[in-house]
Amino acid sequence: MDVRHLEYFLAAVDHGSFNRAAASLYLSQPSLSQAIRILERDLGSELFHRIGRRVVLTEAGVALVEPARAAIRSMQLARTSVESVHGLVTGRLEIAAMPSQAVSPLTEMISRFIRAYPGVSVTVRAAFTAREVTEMVRTGAAELGILASAGESQATEVCTHPLSEQRFILLAPPDGPFPPDTTAVGMEDLAGHRLVVGQQGTGMRQYVDDLRAGGVDVTLAVETEHRVAILPLVLAGAGLAVVTEAWRELARQTGVLALDLEPPTSLKVALVSRHGATTPAAEAFLRTAAEDDLDPNT
């Protein structure tokens, strides 16, 4: 079995079509299709249902995804380990990140990392919940992940490296219900207001759901998976929004009020990595993060 064929298979899985997978690999679509057919012949089973231009995994294809990612990661580990004998000069690192944590602290971490290792490229992959981040790291879709949760991570299938906490804040338009000189609001002050919220499974949505369960009467005006839409929605008057303080500086730059919520409530932020050996790039990233961010007691 050719490892390149596994790479082509995973590209088709991730992109949902042979055309897009081939483009991402700078291959012709017929070349990729032929490689997939060879892999299917080697394994004695079809891996995809071909539905027009789309491809959908068969049961055999689903079973192959995790072993294929593990095989690719093992090859990457072997290659980069040999290269690192001469120093970490080149390489690639994939990090799964929840939206708010991708803004901060991940931005600062990547900035420090690429200054120290300018030849290593970093790819940030989107995940909307802590569970999604954990699964992407566990299955090898990403080597590291950054997530936030209300309590300490209980995921035993990955290694957890605690970071600092992020407090919840309230975003409000400058011409909204709170005067510009307001610095903090109580949870009860949100009663009667419309809110822009994230989807189920996110910390910001859980905060609002807990408010409602506690008797604070708020209206869910907009639910969005696109975190970049929150600031424009607040500015446009669609509603207020509860987010983490990762958004504080961006909010101020756009003119949105960023107000502390009382009593303070926080999410615990952590990096996660796979059990066992990791690539030199991942190890270097963890070391770089540890210089300022990782909990010294872990």
Results as ranks from 00 to 15, higher is better:
33 S>K: 06
139 T>F: 05
222 V>P: 02
62 V>N: 14
40 E>R: 05
57 L>W: 08
279 T>P: 00
223 E>N: 11
68 A>H: 04
205 R>S: 11
280 P>T: 03
232 P>Y: 13
288 T>P: 01
70 A>Y: 06
232 P>I: 00
203 G>W: 02
194 R>P: 02
280 P>W: 01
268 K>I: 12
233 L>H: 12
109 M>Y: 08
198 G>H: 14
167 R>Q: 09
178 F>G: 02
58 T>K: 02
245 E>K: 09
248 R>E: 13
242 V>M: 02
45 S>G: 05
7 E>Y: 04
2 D>W: 08
52 G>F: 00
14 D>A: 12
243 V>Y: 01
284 A>M: 03
189 D>K: 00
187 M>S: 15
273 S>I: 02
116 A>L: 10
245 E>S: 14
248 R>V: 10
22 A>W: 01
33 S>L: 02
127 A>G: 07
298 T>S: 14
10 L>H: 03
81 S>H: 13
89 V>E: 15
75 M>G: 04
73 R>D: 13
22 A>H: 06
167 R>H: 02
149 S>L: 13
182 T>D: 05
255 G>A: 05
71 A>S: 13
118 P>G: 05
62 V>H: 15
255 G>W: 05
134 T>W: 10
108 E>I: 08
54 R>L: 06
170 L>F: 03
222 V>M: 10
3 V>R: 09
268 K>V: 12
233 L>E: 01
88 L>V: 07
44 G>C: 11
175 D>E: 15
287 R>E: 02
222 V>R: 04
125 R>I: 13
224 T>V: 01
131 R>C: 07
94 E>L: 01
5 H>M: 12
245 E>P: 10
269 V>A: 11
239 G>K: 06
245 E>T: 13
122 V>Y: 08
278 T>E: 09
93 L>W: 09
194 R>Y: 05
286 L>G: 05
53 R>Y: 01
271 L>I: 10
243 V>L: 10
123 T>S: 05
56 V>S: 11
17 S>V: 04
287 R>A: 05
10 L>A: 07
178 F>Y: 15
122 V>S: 08
156 T>V: 03
149 S>I: 07
136 M>F: 12
76 Q>F: 15
40 E>S: 07
6 L>W: 06
175 D>F: 15
35 A>I: 01
18 F>M: 08
46 E>Q: 04
40 E>Y: 05
137 V>W: 07
257 L>E: 07
49 H>L: 12
155 A>K: 06
173 P>I: 10
57 L>Y: 06
276 G>M: 02
171 L>V: 13
67 P>V: 03
242 V>I: 07
256 V>P: 01
287 R>T: 04
160 T>R: 09
259 L>M: 12
246 A>L: 06
168 F>I: 04
63 A>R: 15
212 R>G: 11
294 L>T: 10
128 F>V: 08
132 E>D: 11
186 G>P: 03
180 P>S: 14
237 G>C: 07
41 R>K: 14
10 L>F: 11
269 V>M: 10
121 S>G: 13
136 M>D: 12
96 A>M: 10
151 G>R: 09
251 A>K: 00
72 I>T: 05
144 L>E: 07
268 K>P: 06
262 E>P: 00
85 V>K: 15
19 N>R: 09
114 I>T: 12
106 L>P: 00
93 L>N: 11
105 P>G: 04
237 G>K: 05
178 F>S: 03
293 D>I: 11
100 S>Y: 15
90 T>K: 07
253 Q>C: 03
45 S>Y: 06
10 L>N: 04
47 L>T: 01
216 V>D: 00
69 R>W: 13
